[in-house]
Amino acid sequence: MAPELIVFLVLGAVAVGSALGMLMSRNAVYSAMFLIMNFATVAVFYLVLGAPFIAMVQVTVYAGAIMVLFLFVIMLLGAEHLERRTGLDWQKPIAVVLGLVLLVEAGYVLASGQASLPAIAIPEAGYGAPAQIGELLFSQYLLPFEVTSVLLLAAMIGAIVITRRDAPKRKKN
């Protein structure tokens, strides 16, 4: 087996394993930890696929900032454990079966060769480097980029408004 394939299989196994770990853990903190691990492996995939910038963002923003936020909320709410049985347990087997069907469908598409994909080529030097991404981001995708900033602002304000306990009463003029 080619060394690349070995790397892929090992990393893929780790990714799937950590995802399953997230799914199965009883404790939400463990779930979060497994997810961070999963994100880290995916970041390595990004590196392999020639996307160093995205990999970096994945580690800093996703595995870093966002997951810290998750852990923070879990700790804040004391919501590590909560499993009270409800009347929806019949849903679990259905969901698993449907998931398997989805996988079979995807596998069939891949195996039958309906979607003929070209082989991955070796990219030119500098592909996916921050400089190249930046150039594209600030020329062709400038408007979406600016819109994104508005979106983030809106999200920030939204989060503040939603979590504010009571509107501080204004002084009457």
Binding site: V16, A19, L20, M22, L23, A28, A79, L82, E83, R84, T86, L88, Q91, K92, A95, V96, L98, G99, L102
Partner: peptide, 11 residues
Amino acid sequence: IGTLGVLTRRN
């Protein structure tokens, strides 16, 4: 796996 998480977990 993500879909299953959404459908089966309660937290």
